[in-house]
Design a protein around this nucleic acid. Structure first.
Length: 872
RNA sequence: GGGCGCUUAGCUCAGCGGUAGAGCGCUGCCCUUACAAGGCAGAUGUCACUGGUUCGAACCCAGUAGCGCCCACCA
């Protein structure tokens, strides 16, 4: 055969030599939206599949964590759509109360030096809406760039009309059910944000504070207490000791004077006090500490607020007007001057609450706020998981879920902010209060509560408010409960728990069948990415540089339930390379005439049987992994099938077949088309753009209005063990010959004359031309004089003429290594088989396997030894 | 103070009872017309430590050491 004839028939292709993502992505995304590919119908006969987006805050732009979240959701929804479901990925954004108000306030302060109070409530809120509109556009633009297949016609915002109506409806319902109440309690107060917070919005950090012990009272009647918040002494209304603490029994019922205040306070007995800690006596400030508040309730103590909302001391006296921290040191100095300080410990490490939005030290403070009574709601939320109505991935996260729902405190929902859902409570002239439902109005002369709701209150309704609740819409009917929630584990308590509570309450059913909690995105050093550490990567930068598919593949190939993922430009590059490889592999298949015309051959060749078997096994693996949200493993299976089996082996193995032409080539072209068709389908959910572009070229479906977005998801067709075994042997043979050639310094391009014997016994007789082509072994001519003989396997020997002396040392070294490995294997297996206990107790299958391994090792040793002898 | 998890090749991790694996990195050869964003071949590990269970342990159990995270009202 001439050189020219060896070439496969190359067809023209319009595909470029490397994949250029930018143009393809913009065109394809616009096309998908124009064709309504992501729009879900409420009235189709298809089974519903729905995931609601964890609504990004309108505060800013999307970061890599969002990109990860969106990639996983989008991949799942796209796969379900391909599986024939009416699949909905529902988009939207969150008004993010405190966060957004803070950002806009800061912006206005920087730009015009004005505060929100200068503008007034209405004007300020208007400014926030402007901000929101700009950022919402930015976010949706980002979502389009990363390929989110969302139904834009259903986009929602937590403050839009429908959702505000939902908020008001559920508030009223909870209020009427007496699950919302107003009470004066110790709440967490941020003196900078000037609002109440829930426990969840408080971050505890170990700070270096001080522990100061001071003496109240004089002489025998004095008592020493310790505190980390010295300034709160101004509001002390008792000193408490344990009832059984004999050291203080004689002081019970007596009073001591609080320095600087002239106030005399009682010494009381309370079980809460730990006699082991410090002096066993504790100062009690009911207005500024939750424990002290409880003690105050039990002993009917007065609660004295000693600072205002900004943390400035208001208690009359020498410290009035000081900031709480200034007051702390001023009081220490004053007490020291009076000789009342008994001990001072600095630094004293202890947990201090910080505002999770601005990091300011939170001040516990007695305040009248609105609360949700959570007990019954939390129980229903817990039961939904305990009963299996909702399954959490990974299962270990259940513990964390339960530790939240089972220990939930009543939820403080009022915020002293302007940006948010205003509390629908109106107060009458005489302090009457009325809860106003949607469409209702308050009686004449009533004024509305100025506060707004915790932003998570509206987020908690998201899975049903976005579908139209409280109206009984077709969408709600079709898609609730939603299928899966995919979100980061960090918002489990904020969001997941509360959606579970409100979902079971409002709808009578948990909002999700499954909850998949993924991790955070970390950098290559394993550090959490954040703006402040400067290690953040902008997802759009990755898109610009490497393409959206590379971004998505990078994120998905490292994502597992509960586990953090790694991202770096280096990893993005690797993913880009994979996309490019896919591009070129498919391009080659196209040029080789891969076709989807006609059925698969009735009797495929060994190589074709092998690749179809590999494909089927890959489908099985990918399905099993994706069903468990094991994206990393699914991507690994696909990566290796694509790169190792298809690109490295199958395409090489088909080249000679295609070049030879005839019916065999025709058959292989159909298999080639089939394999790429399915490979592209399998990859589409994660790398939608490049696969769509390639698939439409492969199928010619563009003209028919086809799209991979709606192509059926592959199903496994069954494995072929015999084909996998034979091709495995063929691969082994090829690698052995290549190794020899490499060791001998024979150039890959150099053809070498050789004979192959024993292929028939190996079951590979038909594959001789293929093997020769792969390792460049020419048929021997008349003057063939082999210079080396290679026993590559039990059955097959290759004799070849390397045209000259072979490098005996190199070959001997190679063989010696093989011999050593075989001897080690023989040693290990022989030892096992010589062990009576092993033979008696190990399962037969295992014993058989070891016997077979021993036999192989023995054969290898014989073969390699013989070869070494031949070398002399 | 509770709870969860981790420790396997230089790096990031998979394997969770029967031959230690992958990707990247590294070494050598190759511009072989699908792809140099590539191909072929290669090197690399007392699977944290100590005991135990087992015919057999990276894998199960106990303890030790380091690391990470979550929760927490000891003033």
């Amino acid at each position: 055969m001439t050189d020219a004839a060896k070439q496969p028939t190359i067809r023209e292709t319009h595909l470029s030599k490397t994949y250029a993502p930018a143009e393809v992505e913009a065109r394809r995304y616009a096309g998908w939206v124009a064709d309504g590919r992501f729009e879900a119908a409420d009235d189709s006969g298809r089974d519903p599949y729905c995931i609601v987006i964890p609504p990004p805050n309108v505060t800013g732009q999307l970061h890599l964590g969002h990109a990860l979240n969106h990639t996983l959701i989008d991949a799942v929804v796209r796969r379900e759509r391909m599986r024939g479901k009416e699949a909905l990925f529902l988009p939207g954004t969150d008004h993010a109360g405190i966060a957004t108000q803070n950002v806009v306030e800061r912006k206005i302060a920087e730009g015009e030096g004005a505060s929100r109070h200068d503008l007034g409530r209405e004007a300020f809120i208007e400014r926030v809406w402007e901000w929101k509109d700009a950022y919402r556009d930015r976010i949706t633009d980002q979502m389009k760039k990363i390929g989110d297949g969302v139904d834009w016609s259903r986009e929602r915002f937590t403050l839009d009309e429908g959702l505000s109506n939902a908020v008001q409806t559920i508030f009223k319902r909870l209020y009427d059910d007496e699950l919302i109440y107003r009470a004066g309690r110790i709440i967490n107060w941020c003196p900078r944000c000037m609002t109440a917070l829930s426990e969840m919005e408080v971050e505890h950090q170990d700070d270096a504070g001080e522990l100061v012990s001071m003496r109240y009272g004089e002489g025998e009647r004095s008592i020493v207490v310790a505190t980390t918040r010295l300034e709160t002494m101004l509001g002390d209304t008792a000193v408490a000791v344990h009832p059984d603490d004999e050291r203080y029994t004689h002081l019970l019922g007596t009073t001591v004077e609080v320095p600087f205040t002239g106030r005399r306070i009682p010494i009381v007995a309370d079980e809460h006090v730990d006699p082991e800690f410090g002096t066993g006596a504790v100062k009690v400030t009911p207005a500024h500490d939750p424990n002290d508040f409880a003690i105050g309730q039990r002993h009917d103590l007065e609660s004295i607020l000693i600072m205002d909302e900004r943390g400035t001391i208001t208690a009359h006296g020498p410290f009035e007007g000081l900031d709480r921290f200034e007051a702390r040191s001023a009081i220490a100095a004053a007490l020291r001057a009076e000789g009342r300080i008994v001990a001072e410990q600095r630094p004293y490490m202890h947990a201090v609450g910080h505002c999770d939005r601005c990091d300011t030290v939170v001040e516990p403070r007695l305040s009248k706020q609105w609360f949700v009574k959570v007990a019954s709601l939390a129980k229903a939320a817990a039961d939904a998981v305990r009963s299996g109505e909702t399954t959490i991935y990974p299962p270990e996260m259940e513990k964390r879920y339960f530790s939240w729902v089972d220990n939930l405190l009543d939820w403080c929902i009022s915020r002293q902010l302007w940006w948010g859902h205003r509390i629908p409570i109106w107060y009458g002239p005489d302090g009457e209060q009325v809860c106003v439902g949607p469409g209702e109005s308050a009686p004449e002369g009533y004024v509305q509560d100025p506060d707004v709701l915790d932003t998570w209150f509206s987020s908690a309704l998201w899975p049903f408010s976005t579908l139209g609740w409280p109206e009984a819409t077709p969408a709600l009917e079709k898609f609730y409960p939603t299928s899966t929630l995919i979100t980061g584990w960090d918002i489990l308590p904020f969001w997941v728990v509360r959606m579970m509570m409100f979902g079971t309450y409002a709808m009578g059913r948990a909002p999700f069948a499954e909850v998949m909690l993924h991790g955070l995105v970390r950098d290559k050093e394993g550090k959490k990415m954040s703006k402040s550490s400067g290690n953040g990567i902008d997802p759009l930068e990755v898109v610009d540089q490497y393409g959206a598919d590379a971004l998505r593949f990078m994120l998905a190939r490292d994502a597992s339930p509960g586990a953090d993922g790694i991202a770096s430009l280096e990893l993005a590059e690797i993913s880009r390379n994979f996309c490019n490889k896919l591009w070129n592999g498919t391009r080659f298949a196209l040029m080789s005439g891969a076709t989807l015309d006609g059925d698969l051959p009735a009797e495929p060749s060994l190589i074709d049987r092998w690749v179809l078997s590999r494909l089927s096994r890959t489908v099985e693996a990918v399905d099993a992994f994706l069903d468990e949200y094991e994206f990393a493993k699914a991507m690994d299976a696909l990566y290796h099938f694509a790169w190792d089996d298809v690109f490295d082996w199958y395409l090489e193995l088909t080249k000679p077949v295609l070049a030879a032409g005839g019916p065999a080539a025709e058959a292989t072209r159909r298999v080639l088309g089939h394999v790429f068709d399915h490979l592209l389908r399998l990859l589409h959910p994660v790398v939608p753009f490049v696969t769509e572009e390639l698939w439409l070229s492969l199928t010619g479906g563009e003209a028919r209005g086809d799209s991979l977005t709606v192509a059926p998801w592959p199903t496994a067709a069954g494995g072929d063990d015999a084909a996998e075994r034979l091709v495995g042997a063929l691969q082994h043979l090829v690698v052995e010959v290549r190794r020899f050639r490499d060791g001998q310094g024979v150039k890959p391009s150099q053809a070498v004359a050789a004979t192959l014997t024993g292929l028939d016994r190996a079951g590979l007789a038909d594959q001789e031309p293929l093997i020769r082509a792969l390792v460049r072994l020419d048929a021997p001519d008349a003057g063939f004089a082999p210079t080396a003989e290679l026993a590559v396997s039990e059955h097959v020997t290759v004799a070849l003429d390397t045209s000259g002396a072979i490098d005996v040392d190199a070959e001997r070294a190679r063989l010696a290594k093989a011999l050593k490995a075989a001897e080690k294997e023989l040693d290990g297996t022989a030892k096992k088989l010589g062990n009576e206990a092993f033979l008696a107790k190990a399962p037969d299958a295992v014993v058989e396997k070891i016997r077979a391994r021993k036999a192989t090792a023995e054969a290898d040793i014989a073969r390699v030894t013989a070869q070494l002898e031949r070398l002399g």
